Computed example of a mutant assay.
Amino acid sequence: MSISGISSALFTPTAGQGRRGQGAAGTGQAAETAPPGTPAAEKNLTSDQQSQLRELKKTDAEVRTHEQAHKTAGGPYAGSIQLEYTTGPDGRRYATAGEVPIDVSPVRGNPEATITKMEVVKRAALAPQNPSPQDRAVASQADATKAQAQTELRQSRSGDEQDGNAQSGGLLQVNALQVASNYQRAASVTQPAFNVVAISA
Rank of each mutant, 00 (worst) to 15 (best):
E112N: 13
I3R: 01
T114H: 05
R54G: 10
Q17F: 11
H66A: 02
Y94P: 00
I102Q: 00
A78F: 03
A125G: 05
N110H: 01
A139L: 00
T96N: 13
T87M: 11
G79Y: 02
P76S: 00
Y94H: 10
Q82P: 05
R20Q: 15
P111Q: 04
R136I: 14
D90Q: 03
A73W: 05
S105V: 07
R136S: 13
R54K: 15
S80A: 10
Q22D: 10
K57F: 03
A142G: 08
L126T: 05
P106D: 00
K117C: 04
P76H: 00
I81S: 08
E32F: 04
Q17W: 12
T116V: 03
E67R: 06
N110V: 10
A24L: 12
I3S: 14
G98S: 04
G16K: 06
T46C: 13
N44S: 15
S8Y: 14
G28K: 05
S105Y: 06
Q52R: 11
L83Y: 15
I115D: 11
K122D: 04
A73S: 10
P101V: 04
R123C: 01
D90H: 07
Q68H: 02
V100F: 01
G74M: 00
D135G: 10
P13F: 03
Q141L: 11
N130K: 06
G21V: 07
A30H: 11
G98H: 03
P76A: 03
A124P: 08
T27H: 02
D143S: 14
R19D: 13
A95Y: 02
S7K: 15
A34Q: 09
V104S: 14
E32K: 14
S47Y: 07
V138F: 01
G18N: 05
Q50G: 03
A61G: 07
G109D: 09
P35H: 01
G109F: 06
A69T: 14
S8K: 14
A24N: 06
G26V: 03
N110T: 08
T12H: 09
H66P: 07
A144W: 04
A142Q: 07
A97S: 01
E62I: 13
Q141A: 02
A125T: 04
G28D: 06
V100D: 00
K71L: 05
E119D: 13
T14M: 15
T59I: 15
A69Q: 06
L56A: 06
F11Q: 05
T96W: 00
V120P: 08
Q17H: 14
F11N: 11
F11D: 08
V100L: 01
G5E: 12
Q29L: 12
V121F: 09
T38A: 00
L10A: 12
A30T: 12
T65S: 15
A97N: 08
A34V: 14
A61Q: 13
G37E: 04
D103C: 04
L83R: 06
P131F: 00
A144C: 02
I102W: 05
K57P: 03
A137D: 04
V107M: 01
P89V: 02
R20N: 10
G18Q: 02
G5I: 13
K57D: 09
A25V: 15
A97T: 06
A31K: 10
D143M: 04
A41W: 07
R54I: 12
S132D: 12
Y77F: 15
S4R: 14
A40S: 10
E99A: 07
L53V: 13
D48T: 06
I81K: 03
T14G: 15
K58N: 12
D143Y: 11
R93P: 11
V107G: 04
S47Q: 15
K122G: 10
